[in-house]
Design a protein around this nucleic acid. Structure first.
Lengths: 361, 361
DNA sequence: TTGAAAGCGTTACCAA
DNA sequence: TTGGTAACGCTTTCAA
């Protein structure tokens, strides 16, 4: 082992340490540290001398050593529970992709960086990471990762399933209100046979949606028409849409909760000879930007991932700041973006917004 | 300041340290450390005693302290250069989303975790992070982040633009070969007026694609028909597609390099009264899964993000392992997935390839 | 104004 | 088999 490889570390060049700079500058560690950090009361010339030496040697402080002193790493573990089997498949979901970016943005804005963790991480895998907190997006029921973080006493932000547990912070969407808004909207547009395409109760949100849908149907004396798509992805979603359209009693509106590319949903309708919105109304739960550019533009229910992320990080920061393990939580609203796909055109002529007062025959 | 808040840290409960466990177990730090790590030669009973004490106290080792000893954090900074202005917009791009997940997977498989960095990070923002290496996906020309990492001597994986620089490792796509494969395929299918929709030379890849396209056109005595879409996103891409289709001399094939949702491209063609593939062939550079489910399925050129990630991480690991700053690099192939949208149906036999405009059953 | 020394919590070496 | 002691590289008292 030569001089170029010391400490068994991977650095080919032995790294320049604070002492090296001090020696070079003819000063002490303390003085150089103060000079570089802009702390302490140093004469300008000494400060400059220290800086110059550091520059000359290409000194970069050892981040780990600083963290050890500081007592925190400003690092937050980030994992997505859903699709735990297909570890990173969630990046394909516009919702999860946006939630991830928004979370990263919100955390960064407060000086924290996100560490990407696979959903299947076991405690000893992240135990070596200096995490100040953790985030589990869309946890599955009884999510092991959630339990691990909670057990480890690491402040956690996830969904409402952790409500009330010490160190846990949740943000959830008002699924009930959202579903009612969608169904009421479709009903107002004349829909009487609203079918739902859903992955089933995979997440809290999906479970709540399903429940509210069934309740709403009961309240309105309508039959619940549910098409399940067992697996995530556009393929299964499109199949489920086709199944919903293919039934003997044709639905006059589709509420697609399973994440599907909106233009593909329209394609499926077209293949079944259904004109959207003339004889089929469509609403998708989606953050997919292509909804706007689809033909016709597709009405979407946005879960507002940016809002969720912002609120959650805020709660986490408050807890981190106070050191309190008091659980907190918040419910955030969704946003229904009404576009042409769910607005029944006035029969005969133009006026797009007129609600039909009777079901289309 | 009370006992419950020591060291100025955010922990409400003073954390249990190794000494605390040692005291509780009536052993020394060393012994407890060995017991918990499974190292050294300890009597089973002592080992159990230490473990029991640790469990009782809820001891969790301090990750930062371990890292300081270990000399590395097994953390890799990850940023995307393109869309540097819209910091996390890249998550919306299937290519970048897949590249990101694949990179995370490849790194994790080797015990490294990814830290999400915004493209606009300045050195002093990541200087506090104990990064062993960095990855900049799709860097812009003269990317500041790339320069910063290189200057800091942090091993870097990015594209070929860094070729030959110490500590830099690149993986790039064979853009020239890929473009020729696409154009030759379209030509073989009878296309003679192939238009290209591109964001322009925003990245190395896009620049190379443009150059090869122009050269190929020259070689084949064809006019280069280029539609630029200045901004990323489906909206601008669709506009550029429409512009390409709207020209006086109608193209008979479209090579869409700008990332657009394939079904949306087909929609645009339909609006212009063009039947795909009967009188317009379409190939998209895309990782969007909806291409498979589009009607007709769309031929795509896959840049194989998973392969790029795997290869790049491999190079990075080799460098990290050897401690060498010797630059390395690799060119990886693309994959043309030929689907109906780019296969000219044999005239006369309509059955197989005619787009279904009526439901099947 | 500058510097020596004491930590931060862990692991590794070597002596007992 | 166990435990004292010395690092890891930095920041921060506190004394000179």
């Amino acid at each position: 082992m030569t001089e170029t490889s010391r400490g068994g570390g991977p650095a080919a060049v032995p790294r320049v340490r604070l002492v090296d700079v001090a020696r070079e500058a003819g000063l002490s560690k303390t003085t150089v540290s103060a000079a570089l950090n802009g702390t302490g009361r140093l004469s300008p010339e000494v400060r400059e001398r220290a800086r110059e030496a550091a520059r000359r040697l290409g000194y970069r402080p050892n981040a780990t050593a600083r963290l050890l002193r500081a007592g925190h790493a400003r690092l937050i573990g980030y994992a997505v529970g859903e699709y735990a089997d297909a570890n990173w498949a969630y990046m394909e979901s516009p919702y999860l992709a946006q939630l991830t970016s928004a979370t990263a943005t919100a955390a960064l804005a407060r000086g924290y960086a996100l560490v990407l963790l696979p959903a299947t991480t076991s405690p000893n895998e992240w135990a070596d990471l200096p995490l100040d907190a953790a985030i589990v997006a869309d946890p599955v029921t009884g999510d092991p990762l959630v339990e691990d973080f909670l057990a480890a006493g690491i402040p956690l932000f996830t969904d409402r399933s952790v409500e009330g547990r010490p160190g846990a912070h949740w943000v959830d969407v008002d699924a009930d209100g959202a579903v009612r808004e969608v169904l009421d909207h479709l009903h107002a547009q004349g829909a009487r046979r609203i079918a739902m395409v859903t992955p089933g109760p995979t997440t809290r949100f999906n479970a709540a949606v399903l429940e509210t849908y069934e309740r709403w149907c009961a309240e309105h004396g309508a039959a619940a028409r549910i098409s399940l798509c067992a697996r995530p992805g556009n393929g299964p979603a499109v199949e489920a849409v086709e199944q919903a359209l293919g039934g003997s009693e044709r639905p006059d509106a589709l509420f697609v909760v399973a994440e599907a590319n909106p233009p593909l949903v329209l394609d499926a309708a077209r293949r079944h000879g259904r004109a959207v919105p003339a004889d089929l109304l469509v609403v998708c739960v989606s953050e997919d930007g292509s909804a706007v550019h689809a033909d016709p533009p597709v009405t979407t229910l946005s879960l507002r991932p940016a809002l969720i992320a912002e609120k959650g990080v805020e709660l986490l920061m408050a807890a981190l700041g106070s050191g309190s393990r008091e659980p907190t939580g918040a419910l955030v609203p969704t946003k229904l973006e009404i576009r042409r796909s769910s607005v029944r055109p006035a029969s005969g002529s133009a006026a797009a917004d007129a609600p039909a007062d009777r079901p289309a025959g």
